[in-house]
Design a binder for these strands. Structure first.
Lengths: 238, 238
DNA sequence: TCAAAAGTGTTGGGATTACACCCATGG
DNA sequence: CCATGGGTGTAATCCCAACACTTTTGA
């Protein structure tokens, strides 16, 4: 009685639908001290021309993770960057064009990383997360959800690694964390904690672009990071 | 050039696929002091009769969250329980029957909650998480992933609320947490911490099923829990 | 020489851990 | 009366937050 309400017996006759992936691409603008998101004008109807996350339909013979990697590569030329599945958006009426299930992915890239000509081809632009325009369908919601996850999980995520350039200074890293948590962090305590993790390698060079004295540059220790990933780590600030 | 590789322009001609939801239903067997998962023998080919998570295809006019709630209700009679989306499994070859994207949901229920006749109709059984049989397709992976998320996030999750009966004792709650973390927790410190949250209401009654002295019963304060959810809370043990 | 950013240590308080004994009761 | 599980308090330690001044150097 309840049994025949289980609909998975219709394996060969059941509904098929469109499946899409959408990427929320985060970058950190070191000069502006702002976290930004890469958006582009949607290329198809409905909502052609409106600002949108970068997305695509998944092809029948394509893994969903591969689809996400594909569109990221198509738009930025980047491969092998942090790109993870986040959430599925599956309301029946979310897309007026058709029933579409959309899987959001989030990605952290170095803001100087993308191939400029690809960006330009697609008329893509970086928007500060505090100032995202109206986006198509439920993409604003996707961005909100991703931001809230970022704030919740920054302590466990390789945010510094992925969002900052190869060489960076401690004041830059501090500003990134302050931007994520939207609050000031004591710089002496920050230095102690972040250096204590062993994740940073101090370089001999100095970056003098933002002060006369110059700040020492650091790079991330990938090996140490992977070691910590195993043990489970946690960097918390105040 | 890169532009025409963006495939989302094929909005009306692109591939459609089957979308399924699968539920990982957790319960805590207080007597056995074990976390268990509800499984049933798959009702359709391929793999008919093999142990499987509870799942179903999503219908064209059905929200994915509704689909998950529907199958949980069909199998247990339960509604309004903790049920959250977890992860999407989308490899092209995961299901030999067809291309199927599957969205896993996880749920915490009171082990005595389900309607026994529904459970029996579907030949469903509870299996301890330490002893899950071989499941169809990638369902073992889904269980692994859910367990690892549970261990990672137990501090933020309403695990006690959902997995324990309405009235429970501190020794029972302690055993639940020890089972999750797979390590002993000092009971004096545990009591201090858990009581300090204000989440528990001490009742006058005692549960004498496991000792002659009897242990005081407690219930959860839902209001307090929702208040803490806002602020973001964190219960950590050793 | 001075403005502007980088860099550096210590201390008090609060939180967490470690730890051992008494209590209540049914059989 | 005793075996079994329930319940309780404190001291030592560690960790973290709070806090202000010196250094460097280009303009």
């Amino acid at each position: 009685m309840a049994k025949h309400r289980l609909t998975n017996k219709y394996y060969y006759g059941t509904d098929r639908m469109l499946v899409a992936v959408d990427c929320i691409i985060f970058g950190f603008d070191v000069k502006a001290e702002q976290i930004k998101i890469l958006l582009f004008p949607r290329e198809i109807e409905p909502f052609q021309g409106s600002w949108s996350l970068i997305g695509s339909f998944v092809q029948k013979k394509e893994d969903i993770d591969k689809a996400a990697a594909r569109i990221l590569r198509e738009l930025t030329g980047l491969d092998q960057v942090f790109l993870e599945q986040h959430k599925v958006y599956g309301h029946t009426n979310r897309d007026p064009g058709d029933r579409v299930i959309s899987i959001s992915y989030w990605s952290f890239i170095k803001i100087e990383g993308p191939d400029r000509s690809l960006i330009k081809d697609h008329n893509a632009e970086w928007f500060p997360v505090r100032n995202i325009p109206k986006l198509v369908i439920d993409h604003n919601q996707m961005v909100e959800d991703a931001l809230s996850l970022m704030r919740k999980n920054a302590r466990y995520l390789p945010i510094g690694f992925e969002l900052l350039p190869e060489k960076f200074t401690l004041p830059q890293l501090l500003k990134l964390y302050q931007e994520i948590y939207q609050k000031p962090i004591d710089d002496r305590n920050f230095r102690k904690k972040i250096l204590a993790t062993g994740l940073l390698k101090k370089l001999d060079s100095k970056d003098k672009t933002s002060s006369k004295k110059g700040a020492f540059q650091y790079s991330f220790d990938q090996t140490k990071y992977e070691e910590l990933l195993q043990k489970g780590f946690d960097i918390e600030f105040q």
